[in-house]
Design a protein around this nucleic acid. Structure first.
Lengths: 183, 183
DNA sequence: TGAAAGTTTCAGAAATTTCTGAAATCCATG
DNA sequence: CATGGATTTCAGAAATTTCTGAAACTTTCA
């Protein structure tokens, strides 16, 4: 497994971005290699391609599995695990968003609710602020749940028409029932 | 600046979540204190509330300023800087998304475009994969740009109606020009 | 101008995270 | 049920990030 210059650059970039994305360099690089590879790769091949230790690869793959970002493939007569990323990029995006929500938002929503349950603590402003934040997160995650359920096809259409969609809703929140065709 | 138990818990939570959110513990805690405070606070008050060093607070506030997450207030006759978070939570969300996009997505988009500019590198699959990823990011950031421009009021409505909005678009991508009122 | 009040910078200490190599474990097969 | 190919675990090393205290700097005003 020798990386071409293209692979190299891509892999290094994913490594650098890793920390901003909440994963570490090696995990980012492993993902990058898998993403660009047409065929599934085993841990040994990844290790060689990246020049890291075998155990580091093992841990990185475990991490990627915990994020649901890689799939496992097996070939008969070979008992090593081979890894790929989904062909469908939208599936990847969905997974990424779902996992980030789970890690970055859900715990906070739980905590906010818990704080509210504890009842008044004598600081009206803080309590109102917490309630408001909880409501906002609920609105956004509720919307996310709706979008999550849409087939990719419709989702892409929705994104393509973009802000036109807002024209379909009046300020009162009603869906405008009829509309002149747009140029 | 003594923190109530409510503040305490909230602050500790934001500190813990900090690393998942791409900021560090102190920065998260500073933000939490400011978020719950009705009145603007100066660096000294924050330092005392959190029990960290003055310099740490200073660096944390600098970081929050670089994220555009805090506002500066001045009172006549006092030359210390007082900090607040915006009253409007939607403004906070917009800032957060804008900054994360800037840090987590834009550099990658730039890199992908640069890799494509370099011309064919002899791995069709990898090249196609990169192009596809670039297109997907462009679609999503384009949609984001559209949403960014909407007034909050409409945005909230949009989120509230949620998936109903998808019913307004047919599979071909045309906006359905008329619609029976929904129950 | 210089003293006072406040803020920032920065080098090193402390803490945390990541990475490695060796040992332990797993498991299909002879 | 032992062997050997493969993976995982884990304790410590290495690297990175965060935090601190001291010094430097900035601004205001007497």
């Amino acid at each position: 497994m020798q990386l071409t210059p293209l692979h190299q650059e891509f892999v290094l970039h994913f490594g650098e971005m890793g920390s901003r994305w909440g994963i570490n360099r090696t995990v980012g690089q492993i993902y990058a290699v898998l993403f660009l590879s047409k065929v599934p790769l085993n841990a040994e091949q990844i290790t060689e391609a990246l020049g890291v230790s075998r155990s580091n690869t093992s841990m990185g793959l475990k991490e990627l599995q915990s994020w649901n970002l890689v799939r496992l493939k097996h070939t008969p007569g070979d008992r090593r695990d081979y890894f790929t990323t989904p062909e469908d990029l939208w599936e990847i995006v969905r997974t990424l968003i779902a996992e980030r929500k789970k890690r970055e938002i859900d715990p906070t929503l739980t905590k906010l609710r818990q704080l509210e349950m504890q009842g008044p603590a004598g600081d009206n402003y803080a309590e109102a602020r917490i309630a408001e934040l909880r409501e906002l997160i609920e609105l956004m995650t509720g919307f996310y749940d709706d979008m999550e359920r849409l087939e990719t096809e419709r989702l892409v259409k929705l994104m393509t028409v973009g802000s036109k969609i807002a024209g379909l809703i009046d300020k009162a929140g009603a869906i405008v029932p009829s509309l002149k065709p747009r140029s």
